[in-house]
Design a protein around this nucleic acid. Structure first.
Length: 577
DNA sequence: GCCGTTTTCGGCCCGACTGTTTTCAGTCG
């Protein structure tokens, strides 16, 4: 049983306990542990095998949850979970996905009307049974009917890049409205630059709140208004995306921005720290508590809020309650990587295989984007679908690069590269003598992704040990929201990269973002250089670099950790070494 | 269920909005 599976079981337990209206803090413990376990780069199974007492050293995992981890690893099941499943059919959890439907209401529906699915709920609403229940009314019944269709998709998160496009559009729409806005900022997971976004949060300071909300209500792709109060309004777009808008006073803007940026876990930690100092933090500001008296002491800027806890401002990308408080306490926050620090891009395709732009077009586009060096890395022959290069064509392409290099002398350095497949049976897709002629070799798995853990791991280790390979491309193979990562022992991959001096790619494609941020952190701990590449299949594809940068920032990476943030002379020296 | 320089019990972040209620519970973020 791997970490993701254990985390999923703890999440399910939390859902089932919530449905039973168990102690909310107990539920939170399960959710916390799920988060900690899925963020962990070490495998729980390995810890259980080697030294199970280490489990309780993990933040948020105590005696009880540690025992459950051991049981799960050793038996693959959990008696407590089986018992709960006996009592509550898992399908009733669907009810919780309806906006406005929480555990209390869902439990009443299940207990009073024996409703176990969305279909049954629809019939009960249409026949007017729901309104008769205590605590329910006609409006609730109508709201359930109106929200039922969202239940199927609720919880679906969109890519950060998509959210960014929507956010920019709404921002512009609001700024162009008649109401004067003194401040406008997007908060939430969008501001933290998470891989995927559940909804958008907008904070505004304005003297004309009604006019702002009227403008918001007139947004062209609005589908309906969910709530509208004095300071808060929520809408749903036609795409299903929810957008929350909040109006805050000037003196609260920083506190609100901090609060609504989250993460929840970061805020819980922050408020705990405030409490121990006799302070209280909410979205309106920081208050000193003196008996019954509450005195506002800060809140206009985020810096002010952190300052009251003697902490420096923490970049939003780091606010996940991982290491940021430890860094901040020592005034040792990393100087996070920026796009302008990137000097090279070492993974891109051309019309020689499945790229849409020619070799020259890609080179020109890289120059336009200010890159100092690039590697042309078309697919190898195994990727037949993409017209992958065999030995002959690979050498032809490299000869072509040799021929045109002088034209670009002094403008850009071009590496003769290849994205060479790691074959299903193990080994590289091109002969050693061919690979030895390349300047830069990426090793990648495209086939046999469903193989068992040991087989995938062995294939990767074989590639890492190969003398011509420089880096592993998209090391886990996951596609966000579409395909799970293949099952691989990342600890073994890290050790092998460290031992053989190889790099790991952070693929900047917003669908991939592979390595995961926690893997990047683990790689840094192993002193493995990260190389952030676009994997561009077109000229425009080179522009996804910025998404890779955001991922790197969330991992706490600085230019020191990233190989292609080096200038050409340092990078080429590193290659020769 | 976790945690501890208020340490083995008693806390655990906090406020807005809605609908169903006559003062508040449930939900959400």
């Amino acid at each position: 049983m791997n970490n993701a599976q254990i985390a999923a079981i703890f999440e399910l337990l939390a859902d089932l306990l919530e449905f039973q209206s168990s102690n909310p803090f107990r539920i939170r413990s399960y959710r916390n542990s799920a988060r900690v376990i899925s963020d962990l780069s070490e495998s729980i199974a390995t810890i259980v095998a080697e030294s199970p007492q280490q489990l309780t050293k993990l933040d948020g995992i105590g005696k009880s949850l540690a025992e459950k981890c051991v049981t799960l690893v050793e038996t693959g099941s959990l008696p407590q979970l089986d018992e709960l499943r006996q009592k509550i059919p898992e399908t009733v959890l669907q009810l919780l996905r309806i906006p406005g439907m929480g555990p209390k209401k869902a439990a009443v529906l299940y207990q009073e009307l024996h409703i176990k699915s969305l279909d049954e709920l629809k019939i009960a609403c249409e026949t007017g049974q729901v309104r008769k229940l205590s605590g329910f009314g006609e409006k609730t019944e109508q709201a359930i009917l109106a929200n039922l269709e969202f239940a199927a998709t609720a919880g679906d998160r969109i890519y950060w890049s998509e959210a960014d496009a929507v956010a920019s559009d709404i921002r512009q729409f609001l700024l162009e409205g008649p109401a004067k806005l003194e401040q406008l900022e997007l908060a939430g997971s969008y501001r933290r630059c998470k891989e995927t976004i559940g909804d958008l949060d907008i904070l505004i300071v304005s003297q004309e709140p009604d006019a702002v909300m009227d403008r918001f209500a007139a947004y062209p792709s609005l589908r309906d208004t969910i709530v509208r109060g004095g300071t808060k309004m929520s809408i749903r777009l036609q795409s299903g995306l929810q957008v929350d808008l909040r109006l805050v006073p000037e003196e609260s803007f920083g506190a609100a921005l901090q609060y609504f940026t989250g993460s929840k876990e970061h805020n819980v930690e922050l408020r705990g720290r405030a409490k121990s100092r006799g302070l209280k933090i909410n979205e309106w500001g920081v208050y000193r508590i003196d008996g019954e008296e509450e005195t506002y002491i800060a809140g206009q800027t985020e810096e002010d809020v952190y300052q009251t806890l003697e902490l420096p401002w923490i970049p939003p990308e780091l606010r996940e309650c991982r290491q940021e408080f430890l860094w901040a306490e020592k005034n040792n926050l990393p100087e996070l990587l920026t796009l302008s620090e990137i000097r090279g891009d070492l993974h891109m395709h051309t019309t020689w295989t499945d790229g849409r732009a020619s070799l020259r077009q890609m080179i020109d586009a890289a120059i336009t984007r200010g890159l100092e060096y690039i590697a042309i890395t078309d697919h190898s022959q195994r990727v037949t679908m993409a017209n992958g290069l065999n030995s002959v064509r690979a050498r032809e392409q490299w000869d072509e690069i040799d021929r045109i290099r002088p034209e670009f002398e002094g403008r850009i350095h071009i590496l003769k590269g290849i994205e060479c497949d790691i074959l299903e049976k193990g080994g590289m897709d091109l002969p050693d003598d061919v690979l030895a002629e390349a300047d830069w070799v990426l090793a990648a798995i495209h086939y046999g992704q469903k193989q068992p853990r040991q087989q995938i791991t062995d294939r990767l280790l074989g590639a890492i040990e190969h003398p011509s390979v420089n880096a592993v491309a998209h090391p886990t193979g996951r596609l966000i929201n579409r395909r799970e990562a293949y099952d691989v022992d990342m600890d073994a991959v890290f050790s092998a990269c460290k031992q053989h001096g190889k790099m790991l790619e952070l693929n900047a494609n917003p669908l991939r973002l592979d390595l995961h941020d926690t893997h990047c952190q683990a790689a840094v701990q192993h002193q493995i250089p990260i190389v952030i590449n676009t994997d561009a299949h077109s000229v425009e594809g080179l522009d996804v670099m910025r998404f890779g940068i955001l991922q790197a920032r969330r991992a706490g990476l600085t230019s020191q950790h990233v190989a292609n943030a080096c200038c050409w002379s340092d990078f080429s020296a590193q290659l020769r070494a």
